[in-house]
Structures are given as C-alpha cells and as structure tokens.
C-alpha cells in the first residue's frame, strides 16, 4: 500500500478516523433538536480563529478552538433567548467570522492555497503536533457524549421536561455547543471548515433513514462517519482532489443509496 508509505498520509488517516467518529456523535444531538446548520455557523466563526493564529504565528488549531468555543457559546445564548431576530443575529455572526478570517489570513501574508486548505481540507497539512491535538480532542468529545448520553437525550427530546426533571439544562446545552465547536476545529484539517458540518449531519441523516432507535442512529452514524471520512481521504489521495470534497461527495452518495434502499424497503413491506 503506497498510501501508507507517507508520514503525512498516516497522520491524515488517523485524524480522519477519529474525526469521522466524533463528528456524528455531536451531529446526532444537533439533528435531534433541528439545529443541523449550527456546525456551519461555528465553522465560519472558527475561520476568524484560524486567521488570528496565522497572524499571531501560533498554532491556528489552538486559536480556532478558542474562538469557535466563544462563537458557539454566543450562538447558544442567542438560541436560548430566541428573539424574533435570532436567526439574523446568527447570520451576522457567520458572515463576520468568514470575513474576519479572510482578512486576517491575508494580513498575515497567507496564500490563497493556505486559505483553501483551511476551508476545504488539505491532505498534507496535519503536522504531528496537530495530530496530538486532534487525537486528544476527538477522544474527549466522544467520551463526553457517551458519559452524558442519557441527559443529552432527555434535553434534546424536550427541554421543558428536562428542566422539571431537575437536569442542568443550560450546562448540557453548552456542552453540546462547546462539543460542536471543538469538533469543528478538530475536523478543520481534514474536511475543512466549510464542509465540516456535512460530516456531522450527513451520516446521521443517512442512518436515520434505516434505523428505528436513537441509540442505533447515534452508533450507526459514528461508524458510518468514520468509514466515509477514511474512505474519502483515500479517494482524495488517488484522485488528487481536496479531501473535504471527496469525503462529502462519498457521504452524500451513501445517503442516496440509503434513501433508495429505504424507499424500496417501504414498498416491499407494503
């Protein structure tokens, strides 16, 4: 396997595997409460963090984690207050994030190709330092989701009922928001900021076509996410396309197959 002969590919594959598992674990809860586009918003905000990191000559992953967590908390606060203008506020935050990032990266003397790497993923960009951060954070996200699984399910099912059950609703909501922010930055190197949300949502959307239960959807989506993430990375190596694109196209193909299977099954059952 020539693909494993390169250090950067080995690092990329490990990162893709872990990110593939972690992203749908958060994504399931976002889809559950119909917030599928939250990951996109955080991705936009994280871009400013990347720009900041490049400008300050520190690790862009680290600054992106900090900025996207701030952004996610802000989004959660806006969601909780649920003003009529809530979705406009979110839109403003998204645009600001993307615009800020593009300006900061240019100011720091970054090239267009570096920019593209952050937005759509890049095979060669996972350094060994990045890999350590990615491995640690993905495992933390996965472990957190599993530990709080019951509470998160209850909160995402019905916030009012969770309140009356005495669950720490605000803390749990922030946990999902921060988890999403961390996942976005962790996935930034492989899928890229503009496509990271797809890795959170598409595996969930695919598995739920065929599954009956919440747990089944959650575990199935994590497994599928890992397969699609690694598969897409391999595809991107051989086809010489950005990994973000190949991972998402592969995932969407999977969705299409599942949708056809589901409709065939429906007809057969009938």
């Amino acid at each position: 396997m020539t693909i494993l002969a390169f250090d950067f590919m080995r690092r990329g594959l490990i990162a893709a595997l872990l990110v593939g598992f972690a992203a749908p674990s958060i994504g399931t809860f976002l889809v559950q409460r119909r917030l599928s586009l939250t990951g996109d918003g955080i991705g936009h905000v994280a871009f400013t963090g990347v720009g900041l990191g490049v400008l300050l000559r520190t690790s862009p992953v680290l600054t992106a984690v900090v900025v996207s967590i701030l952004g996610a908390v802000l989004i959660e606060v806006v969601r909780e207050r649920a003003q009529a203008s809530g979705d406009v506020a979110l839109a403003l935050l998204f645009y600001g994030g993307l615009a800020g990032g593009s300006i900061l990266i240019k100011l720091a003397g970054g090239t267009n190709s570096a920019l593209g790497g952050y937005l759509f993923g890049s095979l060669s960009s996972v350094s060994s330092g990045d890999l350590a951060v990615i491995v640690t954070l993905s495992l933390v996200v996965l472990a957190t989701m599993l530990v709080f699984l019951r509470e998160l399910f209850a909160v995402c099912q019905d916030e009012d009922v969770a309140h009356v059950s005495g669950l720490p609703v605000r803390f749990l909501n922030l946990l999902v928001a921060v988890g999403a922010a961390v996942t976005v930055t962790v996935a930034m190197r492989t899928v890229g900021l503009l496509l990271v949300s797809a890795l959170m949502v598409v595996p969930v959307a695919t598995v739920q076509l065929l599954s009956r239960s919440f747990r089944g959807t959650l575990y199935g989506a994590c497994l599928l996410g890992a397969v699609m993430s690694v598969g897409g990375l391999v595809l991107s190596y051989y086809a010489d396309v950005p990994p973000g694109g190949s991972i998402v196209v592969l995932s969407l193909t999977g969705f299409l197959v599942a949708a056809i299977a589901a409709s065939v099954r429906k007809r057969v059952v009938r």
Binding site: F153, Q157, S213, F214, T217
Partner: peptide, 29 residues
Amino acid sequence: RLGYVPQRLSVGGGVPATVGEVVASGRTG
C-alpha cells in the same frame, strides 16, 4: 417527585427514537 407533561402535538425530535427510549428518558432525573 414532580412529573410534567407539556402540551405537544407530537413527541418531536429530528432523530428517530423508539417508544421505549422516550419513556425510559423519564427516569433520567
């Protein structure tokens, strides 16, 4: 000690869940 049933048209949620899972979530507290 409290149980609360809000006014809802359906159980809701964007991800499928079984009847058993939803009812079991009432034990979470």
